[in-house]
Simulated scan of single mutants.
Amino acid sequence: MKEVALVIIFNHNYTANIKPLTLLYGNRFKNIFFVIPFYNGNLPNVINVFEKSCFFQGYISSALNQIKKEGFKYYLIIGDDVFLNPSIEETNFKNFFNVNEDTAFIPGPFLLSDPSETRPSRPYAPYWNSIADAQKFDVIQFGFHSEKYLPSKSEAKMLLNRHGFDFSYKIPRRMFFPKPMIRFKEGIRHNLQGIKLLLKNIPNLVYPKPLKYPLIGSYSDVIVISAKHQENFISYSGAFAALNLFVELALPTSIAFAYPKIVSEIDTKYKGETYWYYSHNECEKKYKKSLLYLTENFPIDTLYVHPIKLSKWK
């Protein structure tokens, strides 16, 4: 079997990124696939998809279903605006992500009802924007027989519990109070966002709507999965795409259902460096919008830097 495929997900049809990404990773990975929505070119390593980017778990299911016949042991899946540690390549990636055939890596899986959780993508912790997506989600939807493709509620809860996620359908009121709401050093834009979130969540501060199906969340722009359990993963993530579940709920939940063990950044020496919403400019200033400068000054013990908008960087 081949060791690993690097699968790069494009949220949008920005094919200009193919060339710089090939230059960036071509000498580190023998097998690179680009997954691009509404692609109309003829490159053999580009996989055409049609789902919305907010459900890009469907991109991944479609891509893996096409390339699984090539016999890869692992898939390292990243967004096109993720800059991997320059030392990561196909002979050593398992050491960086601490994976084996029975594990999957995802940066920071968390329970939606845990107010103490502050892993990546939660700048307003304990509040998380996509809790609302989880509250309105239901596996019972017209035109799709979810019971054929997803675990029952009781089975789903058991599958989450085996990873240490003591799932509860109830969400505490304090999950909807973004704190600290006021951060003087972040500027007006950030603080206005915090106030808007507070106003938006007034109904949930009175009575939080319970969840209808067991789910977990996680930042999902970098994952590693093995082929050993890929069939279940492909089915679960494809089903969640058909049901329009937001990707940062769908991917971590699919991984938890399909794989016996999850590893995250708390289980690795290397951590991701992420910049959210109000802090994109901080990333660009720190690395001078230069891929060469970032490569030469890549921070020690860092897995990746995100986001790096290739269209804006030299």
Rank of each mutant, 00 (worst) to 15 (best):
H229D: 06
A134S: 15
K212Q: 14
Y149N: 11
A227Q: 12
I188F: 04
L198K: 00
Y149G: 01
L197C: 00
L192Y: 04
P123C: 10
M158K: 12
S168Q: 15
L160M: 07
R174S: 10
I182K: 01
L199I: 14
P178A: 07
Y213C: 04
P126V: 15
Y219F: 15
F233T: 00
Y236P: 06
Y127K: 06
S226I: 04
I202S: 05
P208M: 00
L199Q: 01
F167C: 06
G143A: 10
L192W: 04
L198Q: 02
P172G: 04
S218Y: 13
S226T: 09
F165V: 03
H190Q: 07
K185G: 03
I182N: 07
G194S: 14
P172Q: 05
H145Y: 08
A132C: 13
R174M: 13
I223D: 10
Y219P: 01
F176S: 00
A132V: 14
F144A: 09
V206L: 15
H190E: 09
G217I: 15
K209S: 15
S168W: 01
P178C: 09
G217P: 06
H190L: 06
F137Q: 02
D138I: 01
N191L: 04
P210R: 03
L160Q: 03
V206H: 06
V206F: 12
Y127I: 06
P123N: 13
V222E: 05
K209R: 14
K212S: 12
L159A: 02
S220V: 09
K196A: 13
D221K: 05
M175Q: 09
L205C: 05
F165N: 04
F177W: 11
M175L: 12
P172L: 01
M175P: 11
G194R: 03
R173Y: 10
Y219G: 11
I182P: 02
F233V: 01
H190N: 11
K170N: 14
M158Q: 09
E186C: 03
S218I: 13
S168F: 02
I225C: 01
G194P: 02
F167W: 15
F167L: 08
E155A: 12
I216S: 05
I225E: 00
D221R: 07
K196D: 09
Y169T: 07
P178F: 04
S218Q: 13
S218W: 09
I182W: 00
I140C: 13
E231R: 00
R173N: 05
N204H: 11
Y207H: 12
S218H: 13
F233K: 01
K157F: 02
K212V: 00
H145G: 04
M181S: 12
K179L: 06
D138W: 10
F184G: 00
E186S: 11
V224L: 05
I171F: 02
V139Y: 13
N129F: 15
S220L: 08
M181A: 12
G143C: 07
M158Y: 08
Q230S: 14
K209E: 10
K212P: 03
F144W: 09
K179V: 12
Q193N: 11
G164A: 11
S154C: 06
P123A: 12
L192K: 02
L192R: 01
Y219H: 09
K136A: 03
D138K: 14
D166L: 10
I131T: 11
